[in-house]
Design a protein around this nucleic acid. Sequence first.
DNA 1: GATGAATGAGCCTTCATTCAT
DNA 2: AATGAATGAAGGCTCATTCAT
Lengths: 209, 209, 209, 209
Amino acid sequence: MGSEVSTGAGRKARGRDERRQAILDGAFAVFARRGYAQTCVQEVAQEAGVAKPTVYNHLADKESLYREAVEAAADRVGARSLAVVEGLREVAPDADLREGLRAAGRGLLQACHDEEARAVHRLASAEAARFPDLETSARERTALRIRSALADRLARLVLAGRLRPCEPELAAEHFLALLTGPLVYRPDAEPDALARAAAEVFLRAYGPG
Amino acid sequence: MGSEVSTGAGRKARGRDERRQAILDGAFAVFARRGYAQTCVQEVAQEAGVAKPTVYNHLADKESLYREAVEAAADRVGARSLAVVEGLREVAPDADLREGLRAAGRGLLQACHDEEARAVHRLASAEAARFPDLETSARERTALRIRSALADRLARLVLAGRLRPCEPELAAEHFLALLTGPLVYRPDAEPDALARAAAEVFLRAYGPG
Amino acid sequence: MGSEVSTGAGRKARGRDERRQAILDGAFAVFARRGYAQTCVQEVAQEAGVAKPTVYNHLADKESLYREAVEAAADRVGARSLAVVEGLREVAPDADLREGLRAAGRGLLQACHDEEARAVHRLASAEAARFPDLETSARERTALRIRSALADRLARLVLAGRLRPCEPELAAEHFLALLTGPLVYRPDAEPDALARAAAEVFLRAYGPG
Amino acid sequence: MGSEVSTGAGRKARGRDERRQAILDGAFAVFARRGYAQTCVQEVAQEAGVAKPTVYNHLADKESLYREAVEAAADRVGARSLAVVEGLREVAPDADLREGLRAAGRGLLQACHDEEARAVHRLASAEAARFPDLETSARERTALRIRSALADRLARLVLAGRLRPCEPELAAEHFLALLTGPLVYRPDAEPDALARAAAEVFLRAYGPG
DNA sequence: GATGAATGAGCCTTCATTCAT
DNA sequence: AATGAATGAAGGCTCATTCAT
């Protein structure tokens, strides 16, 4: 008895959470592949390596499964993207701002336009009829967090005299729009070219007078 | 049968196309409300005021129904948007360009971000798994046509010396991105404010040196 | 076209009702054999010779199926029993009343304690948790109708001086209780013996002074 | 393990039986509320305050649980009813027989038509398909024991000249039928009124010539 | 002995699609 | 051409039961 107390409890708790994670990860993968309705819980269970009822042991029903899987993925995307934006802190006072924005742009394209990020947005908006608030929830976990963090960085750059005075939130929206907007027309555009063009145009519009 | 050929054929043909239209319109409405899987053919039939097998008389199956309904709607959206862009032709050589861009922006927001347009994009991307080419098809009928027409206008403005030399396609993408990008963060933003900001920033970046 | 109008419409209507009847009959048979939960709709469909969805085309769900099947059977039992009680009308003023009651008793045992009747009561009370009012509904269609009709007959016999003055409803309950009560202890008792004993005892208690 | 043998065995045995009782009582309560199929073992476990596998440690499976719970309750009902019938022993040779029967009738209605007793009969007959002998088993533990005991009392009353010669078993059946039969038609009838009417009619039929 | 977690099996229900009229 | 009715196929969910602790 005593020999299992310390690790036993730990293993149990850890095991349960790990299994839940595995189920959510499997669910996101299958939902991304097939969409909500095409996905059957059976397939999610297979992907997670558990039996079907085990899925229901952790998530109440297929809808919860979807919602939680999408939100968890949205959190991952948001976290990745935030880390990239934080990189802008390190732009030295005399460093090349254009280069810093371009690097941030490249990073953001990787972080918030990779396969997972696009799946998050697609899954969130696709089932807006069934989950009226999922789109908003996903947006808060990704786009809004990113804009907010980026606006913080831009505000500092304004104070440092490296950008002209402006509304930081709007400027952030514009930078992100310039960066990702073209993907609508050219989904396979080179990230580096996109980042360069976005930085260039952004600085012409928002650079110091 | 034979007795109806002369008038009957005419009536039938016209009635047939009208009925087909009614079915496609009903289908788009229901698909937009419920999504692909939630929609049952029965409901489409009701919305169109016909019986279920009649739907199958006009469209082979549910998938055709979806595809054709979405593509027809995409064509409508594209046509509306093109008309707006064509309005830029009328910007007189000495007129206020900023105001012209702003007006075009307002019109585009109405034309390509109204309920129907957003439904088209949502429906096209939501079922990417089932219709791998529908997203591309819808994009061609809407976004690409718009960009192309807008690029034409911008090229003329460059030639007229009212914009700095640039790649017209990229500039068009940037204008559209500046215009609609903020909607990701503020879905209920005022169209006029969006158009003004987009025109302003676009001209700072692309206006004559 | 014209040649099918008269029979076609009839056939359609008749066909639909007949099919519904077949489904309800099949359902009652299977429910009586297996009980509510053991019965799967598939088996009901087989018994009725239709496909499973056809069952759902006629009855909304398994619960409706149960309720309607039980109530239809209750109506049949009630109708059969009423016919037997009506037979008491024909007891001539100078005929042997004991013999008339005995014959009615035999008939009632056949009509309201045959396989079907017992199944009705069992099915109605077994699922009282799921169908809180089914037991009452079945009782109204069977027992209460029978008591009422029998009370009518007994009242006439009182007026004719062949029974002592009494409350006809209570007397009817007592006759029916004497008739069927012993079945609780001897489910296989001879109907004729039961009827004779019930008539005998009833007349000792309710016969003219 | 070894260290608990002396006291542990005693405690365990007592605790074990008590726990078994708690489980059977909980099972009966839940089965009576929900019926066999609606009841899940989980709910029985909750009602008994134990975990689900503990139920399986005491009873082999859900069917045993049902059978044993119903039979235990039937034994309780039978015991209560017998005690009431035994009360008839005390009718003094010169006491009011009508009053004695009426008192016994009231007592029997309490003992064998209370909530528990009706649940026993309902549960036993409801699952006749699954437990072909449970109905008989329950009847033996309740109705047949009661009839037998009552027949004993009636036989003595015949010998004492207070009832006319008759078959005691049949007379007992008739008394019980007169007593409880009307409940079929009036489930909420006053027990006292029922008992009075039953005693009255019974004595008219079975009282001394 | 008691429990948390996992599973195998089964059933209700829905719906796209096809016949017969 | 249009419809009422029927069906084949598929999937979500529940639950009795069993391991591992």
